[in-house]
Nucleic acid binder design. Sequence first.
DNA 1: AACACATCCTGACTGC
DNA 2: TGCAGTCAGGATGTGT
Length: 318
Amino acid sequence: MPELPEVETVRAGLAPALTGARVLAIEIFDERSLKRHRSGPADFVQTLVGARIASVVRRGKFIWMPLEFDSKSATQQAGTPQLALVGHLGMSGQMLLRKRGDAPDKLTRVIINCETKRGKLIEFRFIDQRLFGGLQLDELVATPDARAGGFSPNAAKAKWWTNLIPASAAHIARDPLDEFFDADAVWLRFHKKHSGVKRVLLDQQLLSGIGNIYADEALWQAKLHYDQPADTIKRTTFDSLLASVRSILEKAVAEGGTSFDEQYKNVNGESGYFDVSLNAYGMTDQPCGRCGKAIRRDSWMNRGSHFCPNCQRLRKTA
DNA sequence: AACACATCCTGACTGC
DNA sequence: TGCAGTCAGGATGTGT
């Protein structure tokens, strides 16, 4: 499912169409996609209809759209919290952009009808097979470090929402592609952890955006076993692991995300191409691209860990 | 506090 | 064809 590169591809696809767009109407086909919106589906609709989308922002795997309300500007000035439409793709979510009236997409859970700032009528469709993802309206709060909440292309000029983040995503760490990502600070916490390095890489509160695929790929590139305890890893190894993470994420972003299965789609419903360059994930029994030994898949945390048993060995220190 | 684990869900695909 | 079993890239709450 979607990890940082897929979510960024979606964000980048949504932004040109949705920035400045106004919400006209909402169709809910499955309320479970709104379960994280605590005030209920009716409140979701009532609040969101009429709002204008100010931007599309991402941190890690979270996407949010700061909202502006013409009719409520007076109360906003009086201290009402700023709101954002927050989305998470979970394991199987997609966010598609369609023209009003286009053929239906399977498993569509919510449609948000919008008018773009150029006056085009479009549908933002939230599709989700497993319902682990969802949409919600959430209050924006100040970031703890008073810097940008997340990535968006028009954040260069400070806007009212620049240094805000949805409360529900405030605990999510900056991702390795974030311009304010602090490698030294991450190292300080990383090297004290006794858990296996893969578990630590997947901890969104330490660094965000990495999921099972890119964890396996980065560990393969850095020649680390998934269960190598983080506190046995030297700073130089951590640095090269981080360099691997960054280069893999950047490459995947440049290629528009992975499409290992049919779940991941960009906003036009198209798959990415990164799967051709996977070295570990999904390569069970295939020869390792470095040494030729068969890639192994271990059952791990209710999912899979793919690694080369020759290149990626558990060591006393790494 | 830090860590490990169970749990939330459905649909597509595989193999008998 | 039908059906049971398997699998899936995440996040969170709970218990130790």
